[in-house]
Amino acid sequence: MMAVLADGMGGHSGGAMAAEQVLIKARQNFEAYAPQSETPEHLLEGIINEAHLVIKLTRFTSEQDPHSTAVVFMLQPGGAVWAHCGDSRFYHFRGAQTLSRSGDHSLVGELLRKGRIDEQGALTHPQRNVLLSCLGSEREPRIDRSGTAPLTVGDSFLLCSDGLWGYFSDAELGEVIHHLPAREAAQRLIAEARKRSGGYGDNISLAIVKLVEAPATAAPARS
């Protein structure tokens, strides 16, 4: 199973087009995926690199300057892999605990990694929207990837844009996703993000994948 999130930039139509290109390329490459001859990591990197090239090419036929972030996640027997570029995030929770979170390819993310600001300062930094890497720019996209194995019941994965994560701590996200079914958790987080933004928030995009115990199936009755 694959989940993909893209947050477009570059004007209303340009950003939407850039994000759509990420989804189209992910669908095409996933349908053509041949695990006997291609690694999952190669698949994910190929999706991001090829979407980046397509978005760059559209700049020649569009008056917009389209860019996009990308988070690509694939679940497979025994494990999961993911890759991202930009400041859209990937979270891995086990229960309500945060096991891992992707690093933002942004100016503020770099300042955080260097210890020059803290998490609270990052949320209010005047240049928090400045990206250092994204799809569609002149530079080749920076792609960070990771994975986990084995998987267990209680593992949850969140892909989300900055319009969501900017209003929550990791602990808050983990608690909501752990205690609610995926659809209800998404609805709760969207409603709360809108409330906390006071009507001035960014677009909100998210995908939640939860691993739960499969319901027991009744044995067929014997006559």
Results as ranks from 00 to 15, higher is better:
residue 154 G to M: 06
residue 162 D to G: 01
residue 163 G to S: 12
residue 129 N to H: 15
residue 164 L to N: 01
residue 123 L to V: 06
residue 132 L to M: 13
residue 141 P to S: 07
residue 124 T to Y: 09
residue 135 L to G: 00
residue 171 A to D: 14
residue 148 T to I: 12
residue 132 L to D: 00
residue 150 P to L: 14
residue 123 L to F: 08
residue 127 Q to F: 04
residue 124 T to V: 14
residue 147 G to P: 08
residue 156 S to E: 09
residue 165 W to C: 03
residue 149 A to D: 13
residue 141 P to K: 05
residue 143 I to Y: 05
residue 141 P to C: 01
residue 167 Y to S: 06
residue 128 R to W: 13
residue 148 T to K: 12
residue 143 I to H: 01
residue 136 G to E: 09
residue 169 S to C: 06
residue 168 F to M: 10
residue 137 S to R: 11
residue 164 L to R: 03
residue 157 F to R: 04
residue 131 L to P: 06
residue 137 S to C: 08
residue 139 R to F: 13
residue 140 E to D: 15
residue 170 D to S: 11
residue 139 R to N: 15
residue 167 Y to L: 02
residue 145 R to M: 14
residue 147 G to W: 03
residue 170 D to R: 05
residue 143 I to K: 02
residue 137 S to M: 12
residue 146 S to N: 11
residue 134 C to W: 11
residue 127 Q to K: 09
residue 159 L to W: 02
residue 138 E to P: 10
residue 172 E to V: 04
residue 167 Y to R: 02
residue 136 G to S: 14
residue 157 F to T: 05
residue 156 S to Y: 03
residue 167 Y to H: 13
residue 164 L to E: 04
residue 132 L to K: 07
residue 144 D to R: 15
residue 141 P to I: 02
residue 134 C to V: 10
residue 136 G to F: 07
residue 160 C to H: 00
residue 170 D to Y: 04
residue 163 G to F: 06
residue 141 P to R: 01
residue 145 R to P: 09
residue 138 E to Q: 15
residue 143 I to P: 01
residue 161 S to C: 07
residue 167 Y to G: 01
residue 131 L to F: 00
residue 144 D to V: 11
residue 169 S to D: 10
residue 146 S to F: 09
residue 135 L to S: 00
residue 167 Y to D: 07
residue 149 A to P: 10
residue 150 P to N: 12
residue 160 C to K: 00
residue 135 L to A: 07
residue 129 N to F: 11
residue 144 D to K: 14
residue 159 L to M: 11
residue 153 V to T: 09
residue 156 S to P: 03
residue 159 L to F: 03
residue 129 N to A: 14
residue 123 L to W: 08
residue 165 W to A: 07
residue 152 T to P: 06
residue 131 L to D: 00
residue 145 R to F: 13
residue 161 S to G: 06
residue 169 S to W: 12
residue 151 L to Q: 08
residue 149 A to W: 13
residue 168 F to H: 06
residue 163 G to D: 11
residue 134 C to L: 12
residue 133 S to H: 09
residue 168 F to G: 05
residue 159 L to K: 02
residue 127 Q to W: 09
residue 155 D to G: 10
residue 172 E to I: 05
residue 142 R to W: 08
residue 154 G to Y: 01
residue 154 G to K: 04
residue 150 P to K: 14
residue 144 D to N: 15
residue 129 N to R: 09
residue 154 G to W: 06
residue 162 D to S: 10
residue 171 A to G: 07
residue 165 W to P: 00
residue 127 Q to N: 11
residue 166 G to Q: 10
residue 165 W to T: 07
residue 140 E to K: 13
residue 169 S to G: 12
residue 161 S to R: 02
residue 136 G to C: 12
residue 163 G to Q: 12
residue 151 L to T: 07
residue 130 V to G: 07
residue 141 P to Q: 05
